[in-house]
Design a protein around this nucleic acid. Structure first.
Lengths: 143, 143
DNA sequence: ATTATAATATGATAAATATCATATTTAAGA
DNA sequence: TCTTAAATATGATATTTATCATATTATAAT
């Protein structure tokens, strides 16, 4: 469903959301293992997200990645959009070009409602909320 | 959301579902254009689907691809599985390994219901039904 | 039977995604 | 200020997905 890059990004960000903050930064090498993602690859992804201000980072000794309070207000939908580019996620199931109620593709009626519902949830659920569930052991980050 | 291969496969099969039958076969070169897919590529995909008996074909003069009555009973879910392999479509959003209610990933609660609902619809809607909508102009195959 | 036609099988190339490696820059602490 | 530790920037390689090209095989029609 999602590309590896997207899955890796979500896992890394949620890990940071749950276990880091400004006074508790986490280094690449300490992120890669628990979420089971190649170190150099997750480094690249997080560097990209840092540039886009979805995660925070500081270099040098005592440095690392973390989520600021502001970052924690973000959501998974925006994260996905950031890593896989604009509208891949919200596009029509059969094409990149839009299809809509007045010119529906074969799968539009069948899928539209569920897809919108899912998108809505991915937008309205904050990283902070998801991190809370993780910390309470209600959810897990799969390998 | 879906790979090009999956999108192409669905479009081609629905096109055949709507406009072909055993006595009205359609050649590769006459499929590629209307659904806007590279000819050699859709050829490869349809050949694969033919091998897997999801579409029918006959070679030689007067030959081409078509959907048999039996093929028309198929659904989009099985089609997707056939082209992109086993369980990519039904897997957890964050990983290939299963996550479930008793060991939910961070997105499980958020996505599970909608995803199941969508899968269900993709399974229960026959190609014949979708083709009917196409023929009646109720839906279109996007470019 | 021969010819023409269309799928089939196969392999080559291109582009995108995923992965690895490393020199450079920033910043903390001695 | 020097050393060390971390992200950053950049580029190389590998794998997968997408695309192109073509020789082979089956079959209808003459």
């Amino acid at each position: 469903m999602f590309s590896n890059t997207v899955k890796y990004a979500i896992k890394a960000v949620l890990y940071l959301a749950a276990y880091s903050d400004e006074s508790n930064k986490i280094m690449i090498k300490d992120i890669a293992n628990p979420i089971n993602v190649p170190m150099a690859y997750i480094a690249k992804i997080l560097q990209d997200l840092s540039r886009k201000n979805l995660v925070s980072s500081k270099r040098g000794p005592k440095g690392g990645f973390y989520l600021s309070d502001n970052n924690l207000k973000g959501n998974v939908h925006d994260l996905i959009e950031a890593v896989e580019g604009d509208d891949r996620i919200s596009s029509c199931l059969l094409s990149l070009s839009e299809c809509n109620a007045s010119n529906p593709c074969s799968l539009h009626d069948l899928a539209y409602k569920e897809k919108q519902f899912l998108m809505q949830k991915l937008k309205e659920t904050t990283l902070k909320t998801l991190a809370q569930d993780l910390k309470e052991g209600k959810t897990v980050l799969p390998l």
